[in-house]
Design a protein around this nucleic acid. Structure first.
Length: 118
DNA sequence: GACATGACATAAC
DNA sequence: CGTTATGCCATGT
């Protein structure tokens, strides 16, 4: 074995965990990149989560519920994906105030009870 | 290994 | 709210 440091995160299992967490975010709630990374078991890998979403698997269920910890969306406002994400969030009942959602009130609080079934 | 880049986070101004 | 600066981690050159 050795290298428990897990040197590489390109491993499919890690990506699957992240996608599982993202898919578990209930409609009407949101989670930050860092939160998703944390819940997936990779604290501190917020940037890595963002990278994953940029790699194309962003089409997975729930991708639009992931945004920055300050309530702003990750992509630039002019980005088509930004507009798309924003409209989907609005459709779920979120209110944008100066390009931010009230993440403090809408943040997803996972129950230790709900074991993230895949 | 050095450097640069990025859908991040936090603090300071 | 905005920008800058630091720290962070994975990738790619």
């Amino acid at each position: 074995m050795a290298r428990d440091r897990g040197h590489a995160f390109d491993n499919a299992a890690a990506r699957r965990e992240v996608l599982k967490v993202i898919a578990a975010i209930p409609p009407g709630c949101v989670a930050s990149y860092g939160q998703v990374a944390f819940e997936a078991g990779f604290p501190g890998r917020a940037r890595w989560v963002g990278r994953l979403l940029s790699e194309g698997l962003a089409q997975h269920k729930g991708w639009h519920r992931v945004l920055r910890n300050d309530g702003m969306l990750g992509l630039p406002k002019v980005s088509p994906a930004h507009v798309e994400q924003r409209s989907m969030l609005v459709a779920e009942g979120h209110v944008f105030r100066n390009d931010r959602v009230d993440i403090a009130a809408r943040r997803w609080r996972p129950r230790s009870d709900a074991p993230l079934v895949d």
